Simulated assay, not measured.
Amino acid sequence: MENLAAKYTHIKGWGIDADPSNDPTYPLKYHMPTEHDGYNWERPVQQSQDVEVLQSIERPSLPAVFGTSVAPQGLSGQIRRYAFKYSESHYGHWLPLLLADRVNMVEGLVDDLKQGHIPNIFAEKGWKAEWKYNPVGLVTKVATTVLITTAIFAFVTRKKDKR
């Protein structure tokens, strides 16, 4: 069998960590006792919490500084609260968060319409650029969406056959 290293030498950077004298884990393997002094630090002042902050179940407390723009609200907020009942290593955490983002987008559209603002979905979704650079993909995407929406609408509004 051919030497594995020789087989891939044409790839830039291949085997860069094979030389033990150039070991990237060096600082973690060999450290001086004084190097751990930097781990002892004073915790910053806790940021005030004036809105609901959803928190991972792996963390016992909020970090000193956190970011949130809007408290969870509506159906998307309920989905997010449900997601944070699960560990971050579980699909039950991430999939509902993805769904909550999509639901939140629809809630934003409804909120815009309530306030009398008609959103320019064509511009906001970047369809002008997609029409210019990928017209077949855009037509396929729109046709698929229309087909699925029509099928769902037909299924929901069908009349039950009474026999």
Rank of each mutant, 00 (worst) to 15 (best):
P44A: 05
Y30E: 05
G92C: 07
V65H: 14
D19I: 08
K132F: 02
H36D: 09
D161R: 12
K114N: 12
Y133L: 14
K160E: 13
V110N: 05
G38A: 14
Y133T: 09
D23Q: 11
N134P: 02
H31Y: 15
M32H: 13
G126K: 06
Q47D: 06
H10T: 06
P33R: 05
D19L: 09
K159E: 11
S87H: 13
M1T: 11
H10K: 12
A6G: 13
S48H: 08
W94L: 05
M1P: 05
Y8S: 05
K85W: 03
Q49K: 14
M32W: 09
I11Q: 10
N134G: 02
Y26E: 13
I16R: 12
M32T: 10
G15K: 09
S48Y: 03
K125W: 07
K12R: 12
Y91E: 04
R163S: 11
Q47M: 15
S87V: 02
A129S: 09
E58F: 08
I57Y: 01
K132W: 01
G137H: 06
P96S: 04
G13F: 04
L75E: 03
R158C: 02
S87D: 08
L99C: 10
A71H: 01
T145G: 13
A123N: 15
D111E: 15
L98E: 03
W41Y: 15
P60R: 03
G67W: 11
M105T: 13
S48R: 11
D50T: 15
I148N: 09
Q55C: 11
G67F: 13
G92Q: 07
H10R: 09
L28S: 14
M32A: 12
P33T: 09
M1E: 10
H36P: 00
Q46C: 04
T144Y: 07
M32K: 14
H90I: 00
D112A: 15
V103S: 04
A6V: 01
D112Q: 15
I118W: 02
G77P: 09
W127T: 01
V156H: 05
Y30K: 11
I57H: 00
L99H: 06
V45G: 05
Q55W: 04
V53D: 00
V51H: 07
L54V: 08
N40I: 14
